[in-house]
Amino acid sequence: MDATDRLIVNELQGGFPVADRPFAEAATLLGIDEDDLIERVKRLCDHGTLSRFGPLYNAERLGGAVTLAALKVPAADFQRIAAAVNAHPEVAHNYAREDDLNMWFVIATETPERIAEVIADIEAETGLRIYDMPKIEEFYVGLRFQL
C-alpha cells in the first residue's frame, strides 16, 4: 500500500459520483489516472483492504430493522452457540468480546416484526437470554477513518 492507495482510502469513503464516467471524475479530484484508480480499487478489494467499493445502504430506511444483541455464553459451549447463532441468515456480524456478555451480534431483518422472531428462535435454540440493545438514537459520525 503506497501513498496513492492511502489517498484513495482516505478520500473516497464517500462522495463517489453518480455519472457516466465516475472513476474519471474521482480520479481527476485525486490527481491520478482513471484506469490507475480502477486498478488500485480492484487491488484494494482483492487484498481485503477494502471490504467493498460501492453504496452503503441504510436498512432501516427501506423498512427493515436492525438490532444489537448480546449473550452470556458459557466458555465450554462457545463454539456450539456461535454456530447456532451464525446459522441464522439474519445475523450479519458476530463478535466475541471480553466481558460477561461475551457474544455480540447484529440482527438485520426486512421487517421490524421479524426481529422478535429471530430473538425468540435463538433463545429457544441456545437456552440463553438475549440482551436486546436496539438503538434509540444514532449519533452522526463523519466519514474519515484516516490513515
Binding site: V18, L44, G54, P55, N58
Partner: peptide
C-alpha cells in the same frame, strides 16, 4: 440507474457511495 441511485442517496436509503475500509486489514 443513475436517477434511482441519486434518489436513494437523497432519501438516505444510501448513506454514501465509496470505499468501505476493513479496519483489521488496515
Amino acid at each position: 440507474v443513475q436517477a434511482r441511485l441519486r434518489r436513494m442517496l437523497a432519501n438516505g436509503v444510501i448513506r454514501r457511495i465509496g470505499a468501505v475500509p476493513n479496519h483489521y486489514a488496515l
